[in-house]
């Protein structure tokens, strides 16, 4: 992928996608992470939305370029193009609607069809604040995540619970993959060209990613 220029300072730039059924809270997770905002009056997403935020991992600045996609099936004609080049994904379901968890499998397939198999995936059970309405148990989701070798966390964009952790974990994982890869080939990770999008999926990355594995926190 070509270099994106930006005038703010960062060491790594990672492209991340937010996917999952309509109404599970993707846009609010994004606004909570990038602007620390939550809106009860938010509109349904039409097409795609975009936001960025930088975090610090070790002594490096890692910038996330996050694409938030419309959840309705019909929109995949547009949104699936945005999977290309993504090195991380948050696959979101709503803990109060079991069907959104059942659909996770299809989303995973969709993701794996369109991205490199080494993409870092975090399964996210959102709306965990609605305890009395819970329809998906933490155990079921954990088991599923282990089986599929993805990370897993429950979040609440409303209460700001675990949102930071979920994104940070994904970005850190990607960072570990990239820096390990750089070490493996005897490179100084800091010497990677500034402002370049790191593509974990490029061929020589494959082994590096597999060694890292995934957290099933």
């Amino acid at each position: 992928m070509a270099a994106y220029r930006a005038d703010d300072d960062y060491d790594y730039l990672f492209k991340v996608v937010l996917i999952g059924d309509s109404g599970v809270g993707k846009s609010n997770l994004l606004s909570r992470f990038t602007r620390n905002e939550f809106s009860l009056e938010s509109k349904s997403t039409i097409g795609v939305e975009f936001a960025t935020r930088s975090i610090r991992v070790d002594d490096k600045v890692v910038k996330a370029q996050i694409w938030d996609t419309a959840g309705q099936e019909r929109y995949r004609a547009i949104t699936s193009a945005y999977y290309r080049g993504a090195v991380g994904a948050l696959l979101v379901y709503d803990v109060t609607r079991h069907v959104t968890f059942e659909n996770v499998e299809r989303w995973l397939k969709e993701l794996r069809d369109h991205t490199d198999s080494n993409i870092v995936i975090m399964l996210v059970g959102n709306k965990a604040d609605l305890r009395h309405l819970r329809a998906v148990s933490t155990e079921d989701a954990t088991a599923f995540a282990e089986k599929e070798n993805t990370c897993f966390m429950e979040t609440s964009a409303l209460e700001s619970m675990n949102v930071e952790n979920a994104f940070t974990e994904v970005l850190t994982q990607i960072y570990r993959v990239v820096s390990r890869k750089a070490l493996d080939i005897g490179d100084d990770p800091a010497a990677l060209p500034k402002g370049q999008t790191i593509n974990v999926g490029s061929k020589d990355d494959v082994s590096a990613v597999k060694k890292v594995g995934c957290c099933s926190a």
């Binding site: 994106y4 220029r5 509109k43 039409i46 097409g47 795609v48 547009i78």
Partner: peptide
């Protein structure tokens, strides 16, 4: 050059005829 395509900003214009935002 910047790899911008209209689906990034104009899909809503067409899908909702400017009524979305």
């Amino acid at each position: 050059e910047e790899m911008i395509n209209p689906s990034m900003y104009a899909s809503q214009w067409f899908i909702t005829v400017f009524s979305y935002s």
